[in-house]
């Protein structure tokens, strides 16, 4: 029997376990995808013909749909361990960093899956303009990862609180708003600008910087929350 436990090994184990649970129960995936697809289809019908809707509004609407779909599913990754009383067994087996990294990876993949379904559907139904497809892919990838970081961070903080729902909403506002505003601006650039990469360069830097700050800060805070 060989033993080699680092936080990276622990994170991979937590990630694999969470996906196995998700494939077995389909709780988060069902909630997230159902919410997003319903919202996009409803918007497509409500805004018909979509050609009259400004690109700014379309960009904002896309990310509002993605954000609220994310909130519906991603915030529960830590809470579910407390509610099913598996948190103590997890605490004894895995370090707080391993748990946070595993849950963050799970949420990021869930967000990418959500975007892979929502964004093409949105482009199709709302006839969103597309000047720079490669930039849009990068923006969606960075934006969804940043939102996964934000919701995971807030989800970790509120996991042990009694008024989780209300607290999640209050804390999400200041944490998720900056990346949300930036990603809407970058999406608009990918849709409209001739020199889109130059227009969106600052936005991509802000998104990357946001993740570089929020993830280590969340790991530090989570260590204290998770241990009690």
């Amino acid at each position: 029997m060989n033993r080699s436990s680092s936080w990276a090994h622990e994170a991979i184990a937590v990630f694999a376990k969470d996906w196995l649970l998700e494939l077995r129960t389909r709780v988060a995936l069902g909630a997230v995808v159902l919410f997003a697809v319903t919202s996009v289809v409803a918007s497509g019908f409500a805004l018909a013909p979509p050609s009259g809707v400004p690109a700014e509004v379309k960009a904002a609407l896309l990310w509002v749909v993605i954000f609220f779909a994310a909130v519906a599913g991603l915030s529960r990754v830590f809470v579910v361990e407390e509610e099913t009383r598996t948190a103590d067994a997890l605490r004894l087996a895995v370090s707080s960093t391993g748990v946070f990294a595993g849950k963050l990876a799970f949420n990021a993949v869930l967000m990418w899956t959500l975007c892979a379904i929502t964004v093409p559907l949105y482009l199709l139904l709302l006839e969103a303009p597309l000047r720079n497809a490669s930039l849009l892919v990068i923006v969606v990838l960075l934006g969804s990862t940043a939102l996964a970081c934000a919701t995971t961070a807030v989800g970790a903080i509120v996991a042990k609180a009694t008024m989780r729902g209300a607290l999640f909403g209050v804390l999400s506002f200041p944490v998720a708003l900056p990346p949300l505003l930036v990603v809407i601006h970058a999406t608009k650039a990918a849709w409209l600008s001739d020199n889109a990469w130059r227009v969106a360069a600052g936005d991509l830097q802000v998104l990357s910087g946001f993740m570089l700050v929020i993830v280590p800060a969340s790991v530090l805070v989570f260590e204290h929350i998770w241990s009690e």
């Binding site: 029997m1 060989n2 033993r3 080699s4 436990s5 680092s6 090994h9 622990e10 991979i12 184990a13 937590v14 694999a16 376990k17 196995l20 649970l21 077995r24 129960t25 099913t84 009383r85 598996t86 103590d88 067994a89 997890l90 004894l92 087996a93 895995v94 391993g98």
Partner: peptide, 28 residues
């Protein structure tokens, strides 16, 4: 540790639970 309020992952099988705790603890 074994305690009444420490639960296992109910949707997973017995083998999958053991597999997870083994991997999480770095056991091959």
């Amino acid at each position: 540790m074994v305690a009444p309020d420490m639960a296992l992952y109910r949707p997973l099988t017995a083998l999958e639970n053991l597999r997870f705790f083994a991997r999480a603890r770095g056991l091959s």
